[in-house]
Amino acid sequence: MSDIKDISINDSGTIKQIDQQTRERRLEYMQEALKMADEAYEASEVPVGCVFVQNDRIVGQGRNETNITKNGSRHAELVAIDRMLASGSNFHLDDFKTTDLYVTVEPCIMCASALRQVGIRSVFYGCANDRFGGCESVLHVSSDQGLDGLPYYSEGGYCRDEAVLMLRRFYVRENTTAPLPRKKANRVLKTEDLDIRRSNK
């Protein structure tokens, strides 16, 4: 996929080569995040999903729950964090220092701030979030100085097209089933500009 860069820029701003194996592993985790997004889609929630990974192990997962909870702040990231920090879980706040987030859509401003405040190590995401994005699209909450919590490294473009397709499917379905159907253009699923290879597992 053309979106995935061979290089990645680390915290200190230097460019480091990431090996094929690392990249493939990140794509695999993103596939897990996409599964969570798919679960959200099936539950009529905006299809965004995520997994948290520590020491090559998935230690948390979540998906959007804003409709079912009637709470506009129940985004995938916060849902997962709440589960991870729930009493009885083996995961502790300190563990975020060595944990990475894989989320299908760029975290919004709220989640980007929450991720600073728990002290996440780095964030990998699929597509940009043009309306609310807090890592690059609207604001740079992830890297700005002087905010609560710690800045973290973030990078988009992992399985971007699949994340975009999932969102488009959702909005086409919403527009088609709306009491007053929207313009025809909004009810047609566009895919020709996307390069979807589900086969890369």
């Binding site: 702040s73 401003i109 709220m110 989640c111 929450a114 909450v141 905010l147 609560d148």
Partner: peptide
Amino acid sequence: PCVMCCMA
């Protein structure tokens, strides 16, 4: 409120 809360 902090950034997270304002956006919420």
